[in-house]
């Protein structure tokens, strides 16, 4: 089969390209030597150094806190936005609203970062709030661009949902608010989880926007990584990368397991009539 061979080659090369750098990082995180090119034996000393780095650890902690807040805020706003987009037909400024959901997906970070900074400065001058830039301004900025991603993830699930499920709940006597809690929310829950996780990683990953809107004393993980990487290759970063890959892989495995379980449940065959 010619086609199969071709497809196998294309996919192997493609995935090798995607994964080779990550595999190398993991390998070299256990390298005794500081140099990437030389293998000087197995060692976990860079992990020790990573955990001993107070600046790095406090940056990790701050990034985690901001990411939690940003992703939670983003799915709340994103759910509302998804409802507005999917359920309410056309309303005044519908096109503008749709653009404000879609544009952040492609907007270069430098523009978003600069514009938000200028907004915070102007707000500070006009209202005295936010009085200084720091983790709060980063949080607000992250909520804003994560909302767009969350709204897209949630709205695609909402579009698939059978409207008659909500009608059925209402028909059986549930008030609209209860319909939302008992029927809509459980059904769109997977997309809320997906939206939350996506927002979380986007927030954890953002360097540019955070650099613009942060203030003294609020240094996030990507900012620390960037400044240390600029100075050259650092095995500590390899160790950090390995840990990130590990955490992500575990999370994916858990998600995989749940998905498989749901699939197996679904495959329980109904009895013949």
């Amino acid at each position: 089969m010619k086609l199969n061979k071709l497809s196998l080659t294309v996919l192997t090369l493609g995935f090798a390209f995607l994964y080779l750098p990550i595999v190398l990082l993991i390998g070299y995180s256990f390298n005794e030597s500081r140099l990437v090119t030389v293998w000087a034996g197995f060692s976990t000393k860079w992990y020790g150094e990573l955990f001993a780095d107070d600046q790095m650890m406090s940056a990790v902690w701050l990034s985690l806190k901001i990411a939690m807040g940003a992703s939670t805020g983003a799915i709340i706003l994103g759910t509302l936005a998804a409802f507005a987009l999917v359920r309410f037909g056309r309303f005044w400024g519908h096109t503008l609203f749709g653009s404000m959901i879609n544009a952040p997906l492609v907007m270069p970070d430098v523009i978003t970062g600069l514009s938000l900074l200028l907004l915070f400065v102007a707000m500070g001058q006009l209202f005295g709030w936010p009085s200084e830039r720091g983790s709060l301004t980063i949080l607000l900025a992250h909520i804003t661009f994560c909302t767009a991603y969350a709204a897209i993830v949630i709205s695609s699930r909402l579009k698939e949902m059978d409207l008659s499920l909500e009608e059925a709940a209402m028909d059986l006597g549930a008030h609209p608010f209860k319909v939302f809690w008992l029927v809509t929310l459980p059904i769109i829950a997977p997309s809320l989880v997906a939206g939350w996780l996506l927002s979380f990683t986007l927030s954890m990953d953002d360097l540019v926007i955070a650099s613009f809107v942060s203030g003294p004393g609020s240094t996030t993980l990507p900012m620390v990584v960037f400044s240390s990487v600029r100075l050259g290759v650092s095995p500590k970063i390899n160790a950090l990368a390995t840990l990130i890959v590990l955490v992500v892989s575990i999370a994916v495995c858990i998600a995989w397991w749940f998905a498989r379980k749901a699939e197996r449940d679904a495959q329980m065959l109904p009895d013949e009539e």
Binding site: P21, L25, L197, V225
Partner: peptide, 11 residues
């Protein structure tokens, strides 16, 4: 894309 963008570029 779930792992750090910055670190993947650094690699």
């Amino acid at each position: 894309s779930w792992t750090s963008f910055l670190i993947r570029i650094y690699a």
